[in-house]
Amino acid sequence: MAEAQLKKAYDGQWIPSYRLKSAVASQRWQGFVVAMLIVCSTITLATTVGIIVMLVTNSIGFFSSDKVELSKFLTDTQWTLGQSQGEIHYGILPLLSGTFRITAIAMLIAIPFGLITAVYLSEYASRRTRSILKPALEILAGVPTVVLGYVAIVFITPYFLQSLDDGFKAFNAASAGIAVGVLCLPLVTSLAEDALQAVPKTLREGALGLGSTKFETTMKVVLPAALSGIVSAFLLALARAIGETMVVALAAGSSPTFSLDPRLQSQTMTGYIVNTFQSDTVVPGSIAYHSVYAVAVVLFLITLMLTLLGQWVRRRYQEVYQ
């Protein structure tokens, strides 16, 4: 279309008209794209199905073995699979107690410190302190867990714990617990801060307007209003701590103990799984190999329940202010 033609077009009541692209072709192309996207989405479902099928079939392989009974799995207080010789014991309680000790210590650190940091960030912090604390938390959250495991065995155990008490073994529950606590702290902080931020400003202004101090406003108005969000943060952090692997594989040692003493070695469920797969001595098809899946079923169920519970609690509080 030449300049002259354009001029004429503008002058008159010309309307853009060109040969049209095929609408059918673009519809078909869209159909193809949607099909591809559905295939992509199916992969996440396949992952879940894969996990469940794998856990069920292989733990059936474990429990159907002549040497294994379910009742002993649940009640025996010794676990010797993965150790060298001797009688075979496969009670999950020692592994559970290891997980429990480490998780408890981790939560003792992560929950109070994480929550107070969240309260400070949400209610008190000036822009400047925020601009230091937020990136620090983000960096800490991004530190690979194997690094924290390293810190636990190289620094926390020898320089901190063993100087407190001689009873601490080279590998112990306490150092792993502290490191896992540090690892969960940013998670607790960011989730709890989200919950606190979701509390409407009008609520705070109302309390302050009635003459409450900031402390009273925070304690009596903001925290209760954000409670379910905070609880959900705790639950998700707990699930994270239970599933944490590298820190415990490094710092908690490789012998399961049925005890509450944080100074002892304490292999966890995750630690057992990773140690078994790492060693070349465990043959696929053996009892030790199948036991991994039995342990994984317990681990998976516990974390899944905590995650679901956390989401359920969170969804409830989101409904309140939306």
Binding site: T44, G243, E244, A296, L299, F300, L304
Partner: peptide, 8 residues
């Protein structure tokens, strides 16, 4: 899935 431990 986001809550499943990486070892699983």
């Amino acid at each position: 899935l986001a809550g499943v431990p990486s070892i699983v």
